[in-house]
Design a protein around this nucleic acid. Structure first.
Lengths: 133, 133
DNA sequence: CGGGATCCTCTATGATACTG
DNA sequence: CAGTATCATAGAGGATCCCG
């Protein structure tokens, strides 16, 4: 049997993302980007947040990365940007319906990670111990 | 009221990962690392795979990054490595129970991304059109 | 076959300063 | 306030060769 990626993809593999050329990979990359994950989590469930509010909520993010991340998510149609033409500027960010869906999944991951952090820290210590010994 | 990350975390925020010092962030970072996601997806549901098998399945990954990713996942206790002392070497990788849990969530994300790739590509085009115009 | 060791190239990320 | 522009750097990621 031919075992090309295409053949496997159509026949048995539900995950095209495993193939190099699938555009879904770039989507996954953005969803799972360092700050993308945290911004989606911060905007969950219809929250409306301003730029500086996000800046404070997502601790450690720089202005530059926050702006860049928000633009990326907006481009993917996951985040909606509402700019009110006043001075000083007033800009609000929310998740789009699509963004809400993605956020649910991302938050699932984050929650799991938090629930299992202790176990993982223990696993790390064990692994490191074995290697050092 | 004191507004330390710890205080907020306990009181109102379900997501400690939003605070900079929470160890869960490093867990999230690894789970969502570029190749980590794809390796977890490839090893889903009790699959047993050898190194070169993974190398072929996760298209585009280099030997170095695959080795590095597998070691990272093994360290977190998500992947089990079984090396049989024969020549030529025979090494098998599987998910641990913990890894299976994480994989389910990661695959959820990947699947969503694949299902929504078209919509996202359209959103991109729309966004780019608006900016260029 | 399954890596380890090296060297090299980018890109992601940050710090800082400036602006409408 | 909400960014943009610039400069600088660590680390991700890749190519290649080597070994048990």
């Amino acid at each position: 049997m031919t075992d090309t990626p295409a053949a496997r993809g159509a026949a048995t593999l539900p995950f095209d993302a495993l193939s190099a050329d699938c555009p879904s990979r770039s989507v996954v990359d953005r969803l799972t980007s360092r700050w993308g994950v945290l911004v989606l989590a911060a905007l969950r469930r219809g929250r409306v947040m301003r730029f500086s509010e996000l800046r404070r909520t997502v601790e450690g993010v720089s202005e530059k990365m926050l702006a860049q991340t928000l633009q990326g998510l907006e481009r993917e149609g996951l985040v909606h940007r509402e700019a009110r033409p006043v001075v000083p500027p007033h800009v609000e960010y929310t998740l789009t319906p699509s963004g809400e869906e993605a956020a649910v999944l991302v938050i699932g991951l984050v929650s799991w990670a938090e629930a299992n952090t202790e176990a993982i820290v223990r696993a790390r210590a064990s692994y490191d111990g074995r290697r050092t010994a």
